[in-house]
Amino acid sequence: MTTVSKAAKPAARAAARRPRVAAPRPAPAAPKPVMPAGTSHWAEQVHPMLVEAGIRQVGLVPDAGHSRLIQLCEADKSMRIVRLTTEEEGVALLAGAWLGGEKGVLLMQSSGVGNCINMLSLPVACSMPLLILVTMRGDHGEFNAAQVPMGDSTQAVLEAVGVLVKRADIAADVPEMVSSGLRLAFNTFRPVAILIGQRVSGAKDFRKLTQPAGDINE
């Protein structure tokens, strides 16, 4: 094992780091979620679409990416918010709603998709419409390794059980994808999931959250 004296070590490292050719220009920053001027959060456009489609029951397990939409739905007296203890409850809830003549939407994080798989046999076997809006974790720029296995398999498992899956990876696409998802689900009597990519809402950096409040906003 070679040893380097403590004094020599920093210099040796600096030499190793020194570029032999001109340093490339810094890589351009990852594109930020595009929000065209004059528009607000995607949820401001999606909520009226849900109203227009006659959505009455909103089943949800919260996710930070859904928080604005949840606020808008909570403030809407035409909608019944049903807080779920686990996401598959919502699949059964909205099957019952459909039997009783009401339309619903289900909001969850991608980790919750894993909880739903067997329950999705219900809308698949019954040819029932179901719209699930899934905010992705374990996706673009994830910090938390625990989120990756489910996030990376969300689309595959949904499709394997018979759910149609569409994605939006920039905020500007979310309203259009929700609009198309509503039509696809309720016109063709199928479960449909819209995956809202982590690029839209951003990845949480837990290290920043270890800083005192006030320092976390960059």
Binding site: R56, A92, L93, A95, G96, A97, L99, G100, N118, L122
Partner: peptide, 25 residues
Amino acid sequence: NFPLWGAMGAAAMIGLGLALAQPKR
């Protein structure tokens, strides 16, 4: 009658969705 052939664990929540949709029944 809505007899279930699968989806174990669904019955109570199907009941809830239906009860909310049809509050007089």
